[in-house]
């Protein structure tokens, strides 16, 4: 793919002597929703962290033609929005202040003094995640679903060309899971490359353009949901069969029973 936004070649990560990722190569352009799936311990989180430059890796990662290793920390932070698992907030901060932290890479270090541009980005991110009414609330007073939307708003406020989200739907009820995926879908449609880690194959198959399947640190399948989650992959990697159907003109792939 020429002019790819993100190009990865021969990426490897070794953590405390163990090769967690081996020879991963991929290439994506913007306006794309990629779901990264695989069993527990396959290396999904490590791959996201390596892409964001949060962990030492071998091989090359190029963002918009620039090698990741050549970019200063601040610049990396402008190109990758990173949403980690768990949405930890250590102090009972106000929702708006948390969302504003997304503007940190753009130099907005004080939530009380934002440029008009930062104000707009923060407001937009809060509208997209429907948390405008929560702005002055403390994050500790929120429900799990609300917290996850705040976390999502924070990473949307970065307005980075690439958004990496690690299990943003974990521990959410079905409605919020769908909300989050719809949000990521429209973010991708707005011109962003979104890479999302998930264990929910049905959500991945429904919303993603491309699915990456990781197993034991290797990329074992890549393609449209139907290609990547083939009978063989489901059996070999996930040890399940899948129910497949079409519903309302969308593809449904649901893990069904263990093999």
């Amino acid at each position: 793919m020429n002019g790819a936004l993100l190009r990865v070649e021969g990426l490897g990560v070794t953590l405390s002597g163990r090769a967690v990722l081996k020879d991963v190569s991929l290439s994506f352009s913007s306006r794309h929703l990629v779901a990264l799936v695989g069993p527990n311990g396959a290396g999904k989180t490590t791959l996201l962290r390596a892409l964001a430059g949060l962990v030492q890796s071998t091989g090359t990662v190029e963002v918009g033609g620039d090698p990741l290793s050549s970019l200063p920390l601040r610049e990396r932070a402008r190109r990758f929005g990173y949403l980690p698992q768990g949405h930890v907030v250590h102090w009972p901060l106000q929702v708006r202040d948390i969302v504003t932290l997304g503007r940190y890479p753009r130099g907005a270090t004080d939530p009380a003094r934002l440029s008009p541009e930062d104000e707009i980005a923060v407001t937009r991110a809060m509208q997209a995640t429907d948390i405008t009414t929560l702005a002055a609330r403390r994050v500790t007073e929120l429900s799990g679903g609300e917290r996850s939307r705040v976390a999502l708003a924070r990473v949307l406020a970065v307005e980075a060309p690439i958004l990496l989200a690690d299990e943003p739907t974990a521990s959410l009820d079905p409605r919020f899971q769908i909300d989050v995926m719809k949000n990521l879908r429209s973010t991708a449609d707005g011109g962003v490359l979104v890479i999302v880690v998930t264990h929910d194959l049905a959500l991945a198959a429904r919303f993603a353009d491309t699915i990456l399947v990781l197993s034991n640190g290797r990329l074992v399948a890549q393609g449209t949901p139907e290609q990547a989650l083939s009978e063989a992959v489901m059996a070999d990697v996930f040890k399940v069969t899948a129910y497949r159907a079409d519903y309302q003109r969308e593809r449904v792939i649901v893990p069904w029973t263990g093999v």
């Binding site: 949060l54 920390l73 932070a77 990173y82 997304g102 940190y104 270090t109 939530p111």
Partner: peptide, 20 residues
């Protein structure tokens, strides 16, 4: 001081926001 605010989200997130 401003790093402390970003660190409220944990070290990894702070790092992803450009903080060394």
């Amino acid at each position: 001081r401003s790093a402390f605010r970003a660190l409220s989200l944990g070290e990894e997130t702070a790092q992803s926001l450009g903080i060394d």
